[in-house]
Design a protein around this nucleic acid. Structure first.
Lengths: 191, 191
DNA sequence: AGTGCCATGTAATTCGTTACATGATTTC
DNA sequence: GAAATCATGTAACGAATTACATGGCACT
């Protein structure tokens, strides 16, 4: 258990996948390729390096499993501390804005491992970042900088179109997330 | 002049900025922050390392400029070979698909340094990648994989919404790019 | 019986970020 | 006159990619 520095997105992604069950590095790579590939695509060797780091931080445990006809493999299991770390990350809505919103999408994808409010908070923060970005783009459109070319303007239109469409998506999914949050709260109290 | 390996995107971006005039590393960093920040945001130290590599490859030259009250600076100028390398990159439409299309946008932004057909070819390749991506997403929507949650479906809808909006943008800008290509061809022959 | 692919990794290299250094210059 | 900022960079570190290694198994 080492010093608690901030994890990389790859490490959080692996924690997130481990949250739904024990797995080997190889299988995590396969699972990542099937599920989160469009949001986060770590290479296999990247995963093999991340997992021991999680163990060193006490966020996962590993055990060796012997196999016939294959090299032994290490399977990893998330710990209590790992789940807490994952949850904290899923609840943290201060992510830096980046193109494509891939980290936001990753958090949304893994939102089942956090309280149902977390996804809604992420959505709000995402909306806010999108609006700032759209404002900046619209400002550039109104007041073109000096050497602006046709190409610049067209590239700018791309950003504006994407931001607007994504803001539309935000509005359309908010009620779905709210419904899901109510459903989860019900099934939590009913149990 | 070393072995001609493939350049990094940062190196191409710096070549692209140098194409519009001699500049120092510091000024390139400022220019990048003002122009291509949303597509490509290299750190200053990244730029300072890229520039000598461009010189070593014969794609740029540098000279020292003394200053009063400031450290000396190195200013860089793109070479013939550098322009050719940049043009080849701007014409190459086999870029891997990635979220946000940032490399495509960078090429579009710098399209003035290549023949006017290049931008149109890039646009077509981008459209094709978007359509493949949209097909994949729609396939996932039709045939949900096993453990699919509400969150997975919502994240998928994000990808679909963005891809559709971006395809709409493609159609809206194609005529603009065609017009610009005609304009540039005219002014090339008229000269 | 050869070719390729599955399942596990390790190693080498490159890329990129963050923090530090330095001295002048403007700002409060 | 202290504090922020400009204008150059360098150094240390961490992350990510690509290539390599190994042995069985599956297909033709």
């Amino acid at each position: 258990m080492e010093t608690p520095r901030r994890l990389t997105t790859t490490e959080y992604a692996m924690l997130g996948l481990l949250a739904s069950g024990e797995s080997s590095g190889y299988d995590l790579a396969r699972a990542a390729d099937r599920s989160i590939r469009y949001m986060w695509a770590p290479s296999r060797s990247q995963i093999y390096k991340a997992l021991p780091r999680l163990v060193a931080l006490g966020l996962a445990t590993s055990r060796e499993v012997e196999q016939r006809g294959r090299p032994d493999k290490a399977v990893y299991r998330i710990t209590r501390a790992g789940r807490a770390t994952l949850r904290a990350w899923l609840e943290d809505d201060t992510e830096a804005s980046q193109a494509g919103g891939t980290v936001f999408l990753l958090k949304l994808f893994l939102a089942g491992a956090a309280p149902p409010e977390a996804a809604l908070r992420q959505l709000e923060a995402y909306r806010s970042r999108l609006e700032h970005r759209l404002d900046a783009f619209e400002g550039m459109e109104r007041e073109p900088s000096d050497g602006q070319t046709v190409y610049d303007r067209i590239a700018l239109a791309h950003g504006i179109a994407q931001a607007r469409a994504t803001l539309g998506w935000v509005e359309s999914v908010r009620p779905q997330l709210e419904r899901e949050a109510r459903r989860r709260r019900r099934s939590a109290t009913r149990g």
